[in-house]
Design a protein around this nucleic acid. Structure first.
Lengths: 149, 149
DNA sequence: TATTGTTATACTCTATAACTATA
DNA sequence: TATAGTTATAGAGTATAACAATA
């Protein structure tokens, strides 16, 4: 039986709920050889883009809880990929930064993630993909603004 | 600190990983008064669009495991919203269908879901929203085809 | 031998609350 | 009194494997 999706075709969350776990399962498999906790790649990429940021800032940007970030940063430190310093101006805050080894590994993981998304890149033109990023980003900003109310 | 997302701006799964849980948390809260298992709305909508389909077909279309569907259909039957019949041509298969009460409730839930996504509709024009649906659907098809290899 | 629905179970993820140290 | 980081734990969600009925 060929299935129809009916009313769900007009619900953003339906598409997200089906595509996200599907894509996520591919990513998890592809990242398995790196032997790092889920979220490590995102964490490293955000550290790289925001050197010196705090854990709570990074957790918010990545969309997971501050408590979930602890084990990730622990592991990255153990593996010599990142460092956790203390902010001199506010000694409660850690200052996160990515070591050169971390940057190198992060870039390797980026290539792997890129490869996982290849079927999407084959289906969508560069312009369409850029459009998808833009629309998702604006949708996210709109919902995030709602969350703060 | 205003956070940058760096390389993640070029990763589809990053946007999905942040937007999906955010939107999902709003949906779960909004659906709480209905007191139905998560996935019930999707299940009812797919039953409505595919009367007589089997559980395994519905589970695949919805993106969750066949075992997860059992409790959902149990609850929908108990509440008098849906029926589980036996296929006369293949007695292993259940034939699912939505009762009028289920259709009515599903439409109510649709309105609630619609309301949850209002900030997105405010941010994106109808044309942009249609574009987003189309791009997500094509991305999903591309990844689903990959999964079967 | 394979598939559908079912059950039980294990596992992961996330959420929450409590604690410390700092502000 | 509030915030950043940490820890422990409970709850939810998901995945897996095994089983009965049927093909």
């Amino acid at each position: 039986m060929s299935m129809e999706i009916g009313l769900m075709s007009k619900r953003v969350s339906f598409r997200l709920n089906t595509l996200q776990p599907l894509l996520g399962s591919f990513v998890v498999k592809a990242f398995a050889p790196f032997d790092l906790p889920v979220g490590s790649f995102t964490t490293m990429a955000l550290m790289d883009a925001n050197p010196g940021c705090s854990q709570i800032e990074l957790a918010r940007a990545a969309g997971f809880d501050k408590s979930a970030l602890v084990a990730i940063v622990d592991k990255l430190e153990q593996r010599g990929l990142a460092t956790r310093g203390r902010s001199p101006v506010d000694r409660r805050r850690n200052t996160l930064s990515l070591k050169p080894e971390g940057k190198k590994l992060m870039k390797e993981m980026f290539e792997v993630a890129h490869e996982v998304e290849r079927p999407i890149r084959k289906e969508l033109s560069p312009g369409e993909l850029a459009q998808l990023f833009e629309l998702l980003e604006r949708a996210h900003r709109a919902m995030a603004a709602q969350a703060q109310k």
